[in-house]
């Protein structure tokens, strides 16, 4: 159980586009995107599970591609476009995928849900009707302790049948 050093390099401004809004954010040089989102921007929909890349709860989209935000350095993402779970629904309208998660019972505790949704959103943007194997591969980095994944796979399949989600999210 190690603790940090006393070295504290200065924070600096980074230009990030988060959920279609471009902003200048003050970040520490060693700060992860997850810390910037949760602590800096108070976007707490993105979850901190393991903080070591193993659980996928922190998954967000960077220019449409899912990444574990706990391992991504914020300063490395200068100028990139980031989508979090808060950016999926627009004007209160859920994406078909979000609605399918509710309808299928793919949500239990919901802690894995934001990350799952981001991984699945990226998949559906690329493949209109992915095979079950492709779905399982796409969410293999998102641990879920509650559902056994079955209803999550069903929800993604159901959403796929309804067509791809809003494509502008995943430029």
């Amino acid at each position: 159980m190690s603790q940090g050093t006393s070295l504290r390099p200065a924070r600096r401004l980074a230009r990030l586009t988060v959920n279609r809004e471009t902003q200048e954010v003050l970040v520490a040089p060693s700060e992860s995107l997850l810390e910037t989102l949760r602590d800096g921007l108070r976007l707490t929909g993105t979850k901190r599970g393991c903080d070591t890349g193993d659980c996928g709860a922190c998954t967000v989209l960077v220019d449409g591609a899912p990444v574990v935000s706990c391992l991504a350095l914020s300063l490395n993402l200068e100028g990139r476009s980031i989508t979090t779970v808060e950016g999926l629904a627009q004007n209160g309208r859920l994406t078909p995928l979000q609605q399918a998660f509710i309808d299928s019972g793919a949500v239990q505790c919901g802690f894995c849900t934001p990350g799952m949704l981001m991984s699945a959103t990226a998949l559906l943007a690329e493949e209109r009707s992915p095979s079950e194997a492709a779905i399982r591969d796409a969410i293999a980095g998102n641990l879920c302790r509650c559902t056994g994944y079955i209803k999550i796979v069903e929800a993604i399949q159901a959403a796929a049948h309804q067509g791809a989600p809003n494509a502008s999210l995943v430029s």
Partner: peptide, 10 residues
């Protein structure tokens, strides 16, 4: 609880 959980509001 579904709506709050799929939108990150929970």
């Amino acid at each position: 609880d579904g709506y709050e959980k799929v939108t990150g509001v929970a």
